[in-house]
Amino acid sequence: MPGIRITGLRATPVNIPLEKPMWWTGGHYPGTSKTVIEVETDQGLVGLGEAPSVDVLSTIREMGERLIGEDPLDIAGCENLCVPPWQIVQNTDDSSVVKAFGAIEIALWDLRGKVTGEPLYRLLGGAVRKNIPFTEYFAFREGGEMRPEEIADYCVRMREEHGATMFEGKLILGDPNLEIETVRRLRAALGPQDMIRLDSNMQWSLPSAIRIFREIEPFDIRNYEDPVATFEEMAQLRRHSSIRISTHAPDIRRAVALGVPDYIVTNFAVLGGISRTVRFIGACEAMGVGFWCYSGDAGIATAGYLHMSAAMPWITEPSQSLFRWQVGDVIEGGPFRQTDNVIAVPEGPGLGVTLDRDALAHWHRHLVENGPLDHFRDPALPGRFRRLPLD
């Protein structure tokens, strides 16, 4: 489609609540707030993108004004209009511009697929897999599972109802004994074959993490995410355990230098978009650092994860998911939900998803009326924030 031009950009902040708030290291986690992006063109095509937060809303809108009249297929040219020198903003300036443009860049790739009539995974080189694995999630939840036996029973129910055999979760109440007992009950209930991964969000001190790893290692823990706060502490922890470790901090150089973590788990917009994520995964592969995708996103970003996982041979582990707990989405047919651990990659052009305008309006209104969902409220500490580690 020659001569296609950007005519506008709409950015809509929305809430995506969970059916029950879960506990994480920062306090209550009731859901998440996202920014939905629509890049409009003079050919009537609209590209969809998603930012992982609402704090970059004004930056996204400013970038949208800069991009009016530009060729959306010239992604490098669009980046040059929006993002200062990469090394500077990543290291010495405000890197929120990277996240803001990364969300727009996802929409530009969606447009590229719609222009060519090809799904994103084909633009990335073709599919090495079409059914993309995701873990089911478990956690201590307000009004839900708050005891070890309830966590175990919930996971067994997910296996019976949805064919799940891959599980990941947060056992974050600040009690090492509670975590150890819950893992013991999980393994007993699920048997020796099902996957168990844990995510601590940096809640533990190094001594507590060493103790916990020693106690849970016999239960065949596939991976433990961010058990402690720094890569250096992870390196110390590695001396005491062979359990693999992942992180949300995308620092390949330090991971290689220290030998941990083994995997990086992150959001594409945080990396700067689809193009930079492809290069990031390639660097991970070259250096032997694993990669999988983040959780808690709406359907637009999730579609990006599906296409990337379809096209990248290096993504061999299941990605995270909160799909089962999300009560809404902004795409038609959403949220995605896995059966027998997998979700099929969308086959439509671009991301292969369609915006549900009624749902977009509903969840935008939810944000306007209630404010963005707060991840850091602790009912036990009204007006105060938690400090880490919890133990």
Rank of each mutant, 00 (worst) to 15 (best):
M63H: 09
I196K: 11
A255Y: 04
E150H: 03
L73E: 13
E19D: 14
V228K: 10
R197G: 13
D356P: 06
D374K: 13
V36I: 15
N341C: 02
H366Y: 06
L351D: 07
D71M: 09
S58F: 03
R10S: 12
P349N: 10
P119M: 01
G27R: 10
T339G: 08
Q338V: 03
P372G: 12
V330N: 02
I60V: 02
T182G: 10
I243F: 01
L108S: 04
L360V: 08
P2N: 14
P133K: 13
E347H: 05
K114W: 00
G383L: 10
E179C: 12
R112S: 13
N370C: 08
H364N: 15
V183D: 12
L81Q: 05
H366M: 11
S321P: 10
S58H: 00
C293L: 03
L367F: 05
M234A: 09
R365L: 10
G288A: 08
R159F: 04
E70K: 12
W86Y: 14
E332F: 01
S33A: 04
I16Y: 04
I106Y: 04
M308H: 06
T266F: 00
M287S: 14
L186T: 08
I221F: 07
S205A: 11
P30I: 08
A103V: 07
T25S: 15
V260A: 12
T25D: 04
G273M: 08
R5D: 02
I37G: 07
R211T: 00
W24H: 10
E62N: 11
R244D: 00
I88V: 13
E179Q: 13
L67W: 00
E317H: 10
L258P: 06
N341W: 01
D153E: 14
V56C: 14
R157A: 13
S33R: 02
L67K: 04
P17N: 05
V265D: 01
E136S: 15
T92M: 14
V368C: 12
Y294C: 08
V54K: 06
P389K: 05
L190I: 07
W292C: 05
T277E: 05
T354M: 02
R122C: 07
Q90R: 15
V98S: 06
T41D: 07
L45E: 12
Q320A: 12
E145Q: 15
V260C: 01
G77W: 07
T35G: 12
E225N: 01
V260D: 02
P372I: 06
I252Q: 01
E215P: 05
Y121D: 11
I221V: 14
L206E: 11
F219M: 09
R279T: 08
T247Y: 00
A361I: 07
A255C: 13
A301R: 01
Y294S: 10
R365Q: 02
R5Q: 14
S53G: 11
T41E: 08
I300Y: 00
C293Y: 00
D71R: 04
V270T: 13
P218Y: 00
W204C: 03
A311R: 03
A107H: 02
A255P: 06
E50Q: 03
S208A: 15
A286N: 07
A361C: 09
D55H: 14
A249T: 11
M63F: 14
A255T: 01
